[in-house]
């Protein structure tokens, strides 16, 4: 198997914790992994992305070529669209629908929504509301991970185990909160994954 993932968002939103959990799961599954991150100046409220590649065979490039990503996972709708040229024609976009507006010329939310809905395969999810209802506002990124999990090529139970291990030192309550968030995202994706002919 090989899954090439682009994670995107705005500096500080927490895309790297999603990457850490997927990475830990991939290692448990005995897969190869490469993950290119963004550090430094652009983290200050700018757009950030990470290239995460998992595969049963050795991986060459740290960067995903254009047109080759299986999934874009984004904590912000405009940031999901920024990386469209990297997506395979039959790839999935899993994105939060909450705009992060910190620039004066941010596009109109309705137009963004239209552009997302025009994508052949996508899950658009209001992670903030779902996180609040199911667990805690802080778990928005784990809700998104849950929504992406059917498309990763990894067993969902193993992803849950990785969440347990990674949050273990923060106590059982935090672990359970994140498991709830994960399951809420997963359930949503099962009911709301949209496909149409490319």
């Amino acid at each position: 198997m090989q899954t090439d993932i682009i994670l995107s968002g705005v500096g500080g939103q927490g895309i790297l914790s999603i990457a850490t959990i997927i990475g830990a799961t991939a290692i448990t599954e005995g897969l190869y992994i490469k993950q290119a991150e963004v550090h430094g100046m652009s983290q200050r409220g700018g757009d950030v992305q990470s290239n995460l590649r998992i595969s049963s065979n050795p991986i060459n490039s740290d960067l995903i070529p254009t047109g080759c990503a299986d999934i874009i996972i984004s904590l912000e709708p405009m940031e999901a669209l920024r990386y469209l040229p990297y997506l395979k024609r039959d790839g999935w976009v899993i994105t939060s629908t909450s705009p992060f507006v910190n620039i004066p010329n941010y596009p109109e939310p309705d137009k963004l929504k239209e552009a997302l809905e025009a994508l052949p395969r996508h899950v658009a999810i209001d992670v903030d509301t779902l996180a609040k209802e199911a667990a805690s506002p802080r778990a928005a990124n784990i809700v998104l991970l849950g929504a992406a999990s059917p498309f990763l090529g990894l067993p969902e139970a193993q992803i849950e185990n990785a969440i347990r291990n990674i949050f273990a030192r923060k106590g059982e309550q935090v672990v359970e909160m994140n498991i709830k968030a994960f399951r809420a995202g997963l359930e949503y994706a099962k009911g709301h994954a949209r496909t149409k002919p490319a």
Partner: peptide, 16 residues
């Protein structure tokens, strides 16, 4: 490689 076109709505988000 055949790709999606860049989305014209996307604008730069510089660090601040």
């Amino acid at each position: 490689i055949e790709t999606f076109d860049p989305c014209p709505l996307v604008v730069p988000r510089p660090p601040a």
